[in-house]
Design a protein around this nucleic acid. Structure first.
Length: 447
DNA sequence: TTTTGAGTTGTTCGA
DNA sequence: GTCGAACAACTCAAA
């Protein structure tokens, strides 16, 4: 008798309730399924990271991680029969595709149970509701209710001996996927995640509330990719936080809030929560889009962000908001195009956080920002990158502009000496256009 | 049911 | 340069 532990977004061994449940069912066959429907639509950066994480997980299992390529609906039942397993264990998936896939696999398994234990969240989506049972749409009350609800203590660690791992099950080779040329990838894996967390707690957590907004310094936790792939669980982080770490706890809660929002409105992965936005007339300018995506809008803070995305597969959160605002409110392109661009480049690309981060910026999501809140890309740069270090790090054409001068090349006599592009739009004018576009929304009825 | 207070992340303008 | 008000009205949550 043995059990199958099907890993998806939980590539770790510690604080893993589903793994503990699998171990309780007998020798564990750890498996990762390369599902072409997810795999073939993921960006190269995310796949490269995933492959590295799988290598790390395989080492944790003494080389016994089983890899299978194919539709999980066929692969998982077949593996059960082959290994003589009596149950399949997973961490519950609450994203639209994952829920549908799991329901189909469950049906295909017939009498073998698909056991869901835990999830990628401290509080599973759907568990925090208002008194009338409906879902929250505003963050702050969600946060209060989420905190009141609380979460379990971290799960105990499995016995360090490897005797609970089934071996000798045939496996496809570990997948390999090279990142795009020149992309600097972070080191994947569970132990790296814990090292990073300890370093952040020791050195940066105390300054987090201020430093997190500064892309020119390392003020964030850099845990997003580890959380995305479940190399560390948010519950593990929460257990280490104290009273004074409210701001960081709220950031963890934002991730849970957006998972909850997507869970209760799966179509919002595509459609604006406020559907008036999808009935608005949006621009369709491929040249402007390309300039944005390739980091040559002529606005240094925006371009630095987009170039960081392509250089590192990651972008600082403050800058994500600024480039998103620029796409939607200065270029008048629909948020869905930007969300897709992000997902194709981010190594931490998470469908819920990405989708609803974009919807928030566009003003069509939860907690919609007032329509008149339009980020000024120059002012944001001056405020959060006061010495220009961030923009110069990613834009060599601005190397000759010292200090904050790098944010306003148009005001410098030598601003374009190294070939930096001129601004493709006038922010002040486009802001007015956005405000006028948005005022049209008021005339539209919900539908 | 009605009422009341509040809502991540901003910018501009005029004093 | 700094500061407060204005920028719309609406929806949400809870009393």
């Amino acid at each position: 008798m043995s059990s199958v532990m099907w890993f998806r977004r939980d590539l770790r061994t510690l604080d893993h309730p589903a793994l503990m449940a699998a171990i309780a069912d007998g020798p564990v066959v750890p498996v990762f399924v390369i599902d072409p429907r997810l795999w073939d639509s993921s960006g190269d950066v995310r796949l490269a990271y995933l492959c590295a994480s799988l290598r790390s997980l395989n080492e944790s299992f003494g080389g016994n991680l089983v890899i299978r390529r194919g539709d999980p609906v066929e692969v998982i039942p077949a593996l059960c029969r082959e290994a003589g397993a009596t149950s399949v264990h997973v961490s519950a998936d609450f994203a639209p595709y994952g829920m549908q896939r799991d329901a189909q696999v469950e049906a295909a398994l017939g009498d073998f149970p698909l056991v869901r234990t835990g999830s990628p969240y401290a509080v599973a989506p759907g568990r925090v509701t208002k008194d009338d049972g409906t879902a929250y749409r505003v963050f702050t009350p969600f946060y209060r209710a989420w905190f009141r609800h609380g979460w379990r203590a971290p799960a105990e660690a499995p016995d360090p001996s490897l005797s609970w791992i089934a071996s000798g099950i045939a496996s496809d080779p570990l997948p390999e996927h090279a990142p795009p040329a020149g992309v600097a990838m972070p080191v994947a894996g569970e132990s790296t995640a814990w090292d990073r967390w300890e370093e952040f707690r020791a050195n940066a957590l105390g300054d987090y509330s201020e430093a997190r907004n500064r892309p020119d310094i390392d003020g964030t936790s850099f845990l997003s990719h580890h959380l995305k792939w479940g190399e560390i669980h948010p519950r593990s982080l929460l257990a280490d936080l104290g009273e004074s770490d409210e701001v960081y706890r709220k950031e963890i809660c934002w991730r849970e809030f957006y998972a909850d929002v997507l869970h209760q409105a799966p179509s919002s992965v595509r459609d604006s929560l406020d559907d008036r936005f999808d009935r608005m007339k949006w621009a369709d300018d491929d040249a402007a889009y390309a300039a944005w995506a390739e980091g040559r809008t002529g606005y240094p803070f925006v371009d630095a962000g987009m170039r960081q995305l392509r250089a590192e597969g990651w972008m600082h959160n403050r800058v994500r908001m600024v480039v998103a605002s620029f796409l939607v409110k200065d270029l008048h392109l629909p948020w869905q195009r930007g969300a897709r661009e992000f997902m194709s480049w981010l190594h931490d690309g998470d469908i819920a956080s990405n989708t609803h981060g974009w919807q928030w910026t566009a003003g069509c999501g939860t907690d919609a920002s007032p329509f008149y809140r339009v980020f000024n890309p120059v002012m944001q740069g001056l405020k959060f990158d006061p010495n220009g270090d961030y923009v110069r790090r990613y834009i060599p054409e601005l190397a000759q502009l010292d200090g904050a001068r790098a944010h306003e090349p148009w005001d410098q006599p030598d601003g374009y000496a190294l070939g930096y592009p001129e601004r493709i739009v006038d922010h002040k004018a486009e802001r007015e256009v956005a405000l006028s576009d948005y005022s049209v929304l008021k005339e539209m009825k919900d539908g």
